[in-house]
Amino acid sequence: MAVAEALGPGEWLGSELRGDDTWRIPLTRAHRQEVLAAVHAAGNEAREAHGQEALAAVQAAGSEVSQESFRLPTLAPVLRRVRDELTHGRGFALIQGVPVEELSERQCETAALGLAAHVGAIVPQGPEGAPLMHVRDTGADPARARTKSYQHSGRLGYHSDPADVVALLCVRPAESGGLSSVVSSVAVHNEVVRTRPDLAELLYEPWWHDRRTGDGPDSFYTKPICTVRPGGGVSIAYGPDYLRSAQRGATVPPFTPAQEEVMTLLDDLTNDPRFALTMDFRPGDLQFLNNHVTLHSRTAYADHPDPARRRHLLRLWLSVEGARDRRDRN
């Protein structure tokens, strides 16, 4: 099988974007006021419809947050441009200035859900089908095979999430570390094709992945790292941490020498400063990533000793019209 380079605007180099701020979208004062007004309106509508006691449960379920209920007269067109950038452009964007400092934790959830609803449809996460996940250090041991990446403070390898788009809203950054880095997986794919076409073929063969849902056979499944997208291009589903933890499966074969080699090559390329673009999240930063054409990682972080000041992100998964069909989720 001869693998060709993928074409399209999703190919970029981090070294070329460091002096280009067009991927940053700072909110204006009017935008921030719209977000605050929409959050309070959503809370009032839920309270009137369901009563004070049911308000928290309704907001947690995300059932009351939509484009219609979360009105953003001047910000909505900006979010539509973000959606276009995700599906037809570089595949990522960073909104800056969501007014999290003026919101409670529950209101931050509403803001995240409302802003994301203008970009795509919320995809449930986890066994309980939650509309969003809280990303913070729970003390979970990253060495345990069943620990999820959002539960600990250790470094994460470059990976993609199992939905069209992942959104991360920073409520509070860490005391130190926790930097987010993004690479164009299309650029990485094409570099492998150019330099090691023999290894590129392996990316289109089935690989064992780990859902980390247990120790039984249902936790393990196979799919290629790379698949051809409808209409051309390539979709890349990579996560070295979950590929390596799949080796614990009783029926999962060990990596072949060629698989080890291509994983080493992918890890070298994604960690190459020429490819990677690093972001230091600030409160109110809202990052959107197209998982088909980008990979992202996080450095290890140290938290503030005060629990009220520890790192806290909100993670949402989105299905976005025009993107590839949803992948297998865990």
Rank of each mutant, 00 (worst) to 15 (best):
R90W: 00
T147V: 12
T213M: 02
L316G: 08
S235L: 04
R211M: 05
V166N: 06
T74L: 06
D285Q: 08
D20F: 01
K223M: 12
L314N: 09
A30V: 13
N44V: 04
P142N: 08
V186A: 13
S235G: 15
A6G: 13
R106M: 06
V183P: 10
R81D: 14
L115E: 09
M133F: 06
P206G: 05
R244L: 08
D218Q: 15
N290Y: 09
H50G: 09
T147R: 10
A130Q: 14
G114P: 01
R298A: 11
A300R: 13
E109P: 01
F92W: 04
E201K: 13
R194L: 09
V78G: 03
A258R: 15
Y301P: 02
A121E: 15
V182N: 06
F288R: 04
R282V: 05
P127G: 01
V3H: 04
A38R: 11
A42R: 10
A167F: 05
L113T: 04
A323P: 05
S69Q: 11
Y158T: 07
G284T: 13
H296R: 11
G233L: 04
S184N: 06
G114M: 03
W317V: 08
A276E: 14
D20G: 00
W23Y: 15
R32F: 01
R32E: 12
A323K: 04
P283I: 09
V228S: 09
D218C: 00
A116D: 07
P217N: 04
R106H: 07
I95T: 12
K148V: 03
G10S: 13
A250T: 14
R311H: 09
P26F: 04
Y204L: 15
V262K: 10
D306G: 11
T28N: 09
E5I: 08
A37G: 07
A187C: 05
D84Y: 00
W23L: 06
L318R: 08
P230T: 11
E261W: 00
A37M: 08
P142K: 07
N330W: 00
L266V: 09
S297N: 14
Y221E: 00
T87V: 15
T87D: 04
P254G: 13
V171Y: 01
F288M: 04
E201N: 03
P254R: 14
L318H: 10
T138F: 00
D21N: 12
W12K: 01
A143E: 15
A276I: 10
L179M: 07
D285W: 07
P173T: 09
K223A: 15
Q52F: 12
V320P: 09
P162Y: 02
H134Q: 08
L179H: 12
Q59K: 05
Y242K: 12
A112Q: 07
T251S: 14
M133Q: 14
G129M: 10
G239I: 01
V320E: 11
G233P: 07
P257G: 10
D328N: 03
R212M: 03
E45F: 00
G178C: 07
I25Y: 03
D141L: 01
G233V: 06
V3Q: 00
E260W: 03
S176Q: 15
R194A: 15
G91M: 00
P273A: 12
P131I: 10
A187R: 06
G233W: 02
A112F: 02
